[in-house]
Amino acid sequence: MNFGIPFTPPEASSIAGSIDTLFYTLLAFAIALGAFLAGLVVFYAVKYRAGSKADRTGERGRSLPLELTWTVASILIAFVIFGWGVVLFLHREHPPLDALEIAGLGKQWMWEFRHPGGQREINELHIPVGKAVIVSLASQDVIHSFFVPAFRVKQDVVPGRTTHVWFIAEEPGRFHLFCTQYCGTQHSEMGGWVTAMPPEAYAAWLGNQDHAETLAADGERLFRALGCSGCHGNSSKVRAPDLAGIFGRPVPLNNRQTVIADERYLRDSILNPKKEIAAGYEPVMPSFDGLVDEGEMQMLLAYLKSLSAPATGEANQ
């Protein structure tokens, strides 16, 4: 019917529908208002064209009631739109606790994803339908942006910090994945496909991937290789905090403050430990800045998280 010309993006995620509702309502409002104003102007233009017989007696052009009416009306309408936008937006902030967490790494000019089971893929992302998926995003170099139009989600990927985006795919299919933050020469090539598949198909797919170790397992290997265990292991002579269950736990610092050990904290503890010193310990931990790249950082984080009880999902935002 539409001759292969696309007019609207597919609605493939749990939020797509509600966002489209807002969009089309706004569109209707804009068209209605536009039509009204255009109609008004054309009407005047015809009725009061030079030389027409229309009656023109009247005062100087001003009317307080009118000014107030449209000012107040505009304010009210504006605030309704604002509120509606906010409600849908804050939804982003509260991912379900049982969400499946996939590590996404952006680098000039490709996306690299690692599933909890350790399966690695490039510019392709396979996800189960009907299950919440959190993609925790890190960047190796410049700012990128993770954008899946069909899901109506987007999140910039900023070097030096971890950001998150989550969604629930509602129907199987292959959807565009774009990088929408200009990131240099091949910005427009930096994309791929998100493949949403029924859970069992997803499980099967995971199975068929050449089975690497899980992300956490890799992290554990690193934890030894880098010598973390030398201090944090229970049989070490250095007094270093035991990292079991650290993630999401409040940590007292030596400056009498307490911080929640979220990803930001863990990342900083590794890259520059001197910044926040856990109370009662010597600041002897060396910085691993430059020794671990973003990919390895994600493994370490996965490992540290795996050390704590499962349901701490809410801590990662």
């Binding site: 509600s18 966002i19 807002l22 969009f23 706004l26 739109i81 604002f82 509606w84 936008g85 906010v86 409600v87 849908l88 937006f89 939804h91 982003r92 942006s145 954008f147 139009p149 109506r152 989600v153 987007k154 929408t180 933050q181 200009y182």
Partner: peptide, 12 residues
């Protein structure tokens, strides 16, 4: 300016 919509159309 409507947050939820901008998430989708930002940088498009």
């Amino acid at each position: 300016a409507a947050l939820a919509i901008d998430v989708h159309v930002h940088d498009t």
